[in-house]
Write a protein that binds this DNA or RNA. Structure first.
Length: 638
RNA sequence: GCGCCCAUAGCUCAGCUGGAUAGAGCGCCUGUCUACGGAACAGGAGGCCGGGGGUUCGAAUCCCUCUGGGCGCACCA
């Protein structure tokens, strides 16, 4: 069972018991096929599949299951319909109990088997602009990391930056020529592509000149890779400049990556020669056209011939195939991963599969370790092609993010003039950045999508701002009720506690959250989160234990959806699909809005008012927690 | 030629791993309310799920095969 109080999961064992009782123990393990339903709260579809095995008509089989089904205190209606669907309607009292027991702490039980997961994401190149593709792998990877940690996995972030290889001779020479402190050198931080282009132009222009720049650049590569101290020191300073650029982007985005997570291509350099030697000696790699290659099974090239993974070029140099092999070996052997995620662009798929296949063959990636390429689809421009600026150059990421913030700012200035300048600036950043991130996260990670500011910033539809807006309205209600402080101590503590991104990282400290949640179940008491303890509030996570009464249809729908939260997170973890969390939050926001329209909160009295306030608080808690797992902030106002 | 990802409402996308009459948002049409934040809510029109076979009690989903796109396929990463 994955969630604290998920109705569907709680029904499963009862259905299994009924099936065993009706048809015999040998059927106990058959999938009861419990599914959402448009005709009831939930439906059981096991009868149709079982009918043939037990030699009965499907409806009769369904009747037998129903007869043996003990749903006392859980369901108020059980009916068979169609070919043999069993429709269940939950008892409102039971829903209330589940909701109140779940309120508001542990979102989900930790995974049954916590894993040690290496997540490779972001991976920009030194002295190059991060493009929107990097943006998306960064955003998706960071969200996956947070969800996995929240469910108890130990996650090791790996930022596999491109900091090694032949271009570095050119880059270093260029840097030395213009002077490390020159304005042109400053481009490394502000406009890395311009820096790269300048070096490249110099290189191309001098290609035939024996004493020219290109020649010195080639010599510089040799010096770098053979361990020349002075060159190495220059290289280190160069990389450090690029890290400043990366960190500026990460900071703007609220990404939890730090320098500690950087394990660039250069860090594997020392192992490459030995790696090649080993593969060659073991007969896994052989020389082909002067290059040392592996030919993993199942890969054929254009001419139908086996396709090589080049691990040592004919000139003796190493490429990314070699470093990727060293990397995967390191992640399994040293980092002791039992799951390795590559949040990397879809075009790299074949390469990564070849690396994995070779690693499996070499025994560096045992069958017990799962390696997954989380394919990131391209972000397209309005012309349906990979997003580029009008000039054809890659879009400057920082400018793009700033534009998102500016656009959000314009909307907020117009709609909320009463807010202070500072408040509007904060909200604009939260909304603008949130919109961009949500757009990256809300569609399947492997689908391409068209980048469109107007759509992602819209306050209706499946967008970040819509979800944020629902949360802001709840804050407003709680504020007017005079209970905002009381009800949102958790969030307040978090927001005051530090910068975005890092706060989330600290907050959901995998191991802690997991144990705490586990304790809750064993004890059967109200949930306590690590957050609550930090905030120094009551054991209920800052939200008073006002019982929530589930009466109106809108309240019921909202309650049922709230109970799906944990199961949703587990699906995200298993399928590695953050967009499911987006869909969940969007639906939650929609259901809240309907509730808000149909069930007066502040105008109600006494226990009804208290109950609805508590429900609002719980929804807010879920919205902000869910957004947090997506790496998106929840504005105070908007 | 091989591989990967696709093809679902006019547009942008979902579809919970095979369940009933395929959903949402935008756009379009209609209606509602003293508006707890109207950036609202309720309803409607709009689909042979690219085509054709197959498996199954049951297919948008699995298999095969066409058609039509995107990307990748030897010394850049």
């Amino acid at each position: 069972m994955n969630s604290v109080n998920n109705p569907a999961e709680m029904v499963v064992p009862r259905v299994q018991a009924a099936i065993a009782s009706a048809f015999g123990e040998e059927y106990r393990e058959t999938d009861p096929v419990v599914r959402p339903s448009q005709f009831a709260d939930i439906q059981i579809n096991a009868a149709m599949a079982l009918a043939k095995k037990v030699g009965m008509a499907p409806r009769d089989a369904a009747a037998r299951i129903v007869e043996a089904l003990d749903l006392d205190g859980i369901c108020t209606a059980v009916e068979i319909s169609g070919p043999g669907f069993i429709n269940l309607t939950f008892d409102g009292t039971w829903i209330e109990e589940l909701l109140n027991a779940a309120s508001p702490g542990a979102p989900a039980l930790p995974a049954a088997e916590a894993q040690r997961v290496v997540v490779d994401y972001s991976s920009p190149n030194v002295a190059k602009e991060m493009h929107v593709g990097h943006l998306r792998t960064t955003v998706v990877g960071d969200s996956l990391v947070k969800v996995l940690e929240a469910l108890g996995d130990t996650v090791i972030r790996q930022n596999h930056i491109g900091d090694w290889g032949t271009p570095f001779g050119m880059l270093i020479e260029h840097w030395l020529e213009i002077g490390e402190d020159s304005p042109e050198a400053a481009l490394l931080v502000d406009d890395p592509s311009a820096f790269y282009q300048a070096a490249r132009a110099k290189f191309d222009a001098s290609a035939t000149d024996e004493d020219g720049f290109a020649t010195r650049a080639r010599q510089r590569v040799v010096a770098l890779q053979s361990g020349d101290e002075e060159t190495f020191a220059v290289w280190q300073r160069l990389v450090a400049q690029s890290k400043r650029y990366f960190n500026a982007i990460y900071s703007m985005l609220g990404i939890s990556l730090t320098d500690d997570h950087i394990a660039g291509e250069s860090s594997y350099d020392a192992h490459l020669a030995q790696l090649c030697q080993e593969l060659e000696e073991r007969g896994i790699a052989r020389i082909s056209d002067g290059a040392l290659c592996t030919f993993p099974a199942g890969f054929t090239g254009r001419d139908g011939e086996p396709m090589p993974l080049i691990i040592r070029k004919s000139d003796g140099g190493y490429g990314y195939g070699t470093t990727d092999l060293a990397t995967i070996r390191y992640r399994v052997r040293e980092l002791e991963a039992n799951r390795v995620l590559y949040v990397v662009g879809a075009p790299q798929n074949m390469h990564l599969r070849m690396v994995m296949a070779t690693a499996r063959e070499a025994g560096w990636l045992p069958d017990t370790v799962e390696a997954v390429h989380v394919q990131i689809g391209n972000v397209l421009g309005e012309d349906g092609k990979i997003l580029k600026s009008r000039s054809g150059a890659p879009v400057k990421l920082m400018a793009l993010l700033e534009e998102a913030v500016d656009r959000a700012r314009a909307v907020i200035d117009a709609s909320r003039p009463e807010l202070t300048e500072a408040e509007r600036a904060v909200t604009a950043r939260q909304v603008g950045i949130g919109a961009v991130k949500y757009a990256d996260l809300s569609v399947g990670h492997d689908t391409e999508y068209v980048f469109d500011f107007d759509r992602m910033l819209a306050l209706s539809g499946n967008t970040g701002p819509y979800v944020q807006y629902a949360a802001a309205r709840i804050r407003s209600i709680l504020r007017k009720a005079g209970v905002l402080e009381r009800y949102t101590a958790v969030e307040a503590a978090r927001i005051d506690g530090g910068t975005p991104g890092t706060s989330a990282g600290t907050r959901i400290d995998g191991g802690t959250a997991a144990t705490t949640a586990g304790t809750v179940i064993d004890g059967g008491t109200a949930a306590t989160t690590g957050v609550a303890e930090t905030a120094g509030t009551d054991s209920d996570g800052g939200i008073p234990a006002t019982p929530i009464a589930v009466v109106e249809p809108a309240e019921r729908a909202l309650a049922l959806h709230l109970l799906e939260y944990g199961a949703t997170l587990h699906k995200v973890r298993e399928a590695l699909e953050p967009h499911r969390l987006c869909t969940y939050l969007f639906e939650l926001a929609q259901l809240f809005t309907a509730f808000y329209d149909q069930c007066p909160v502040l105008k109600s009295e006494d226990s009804v008012r208290e109950s609805r306030l508590a429900l609002c608080a719980l929804v807010l808690h879920r919205l902000s927690e869910g957004l947090d797992l997506l790496g998106i902030e929840t504005p105070e106002n908007m």
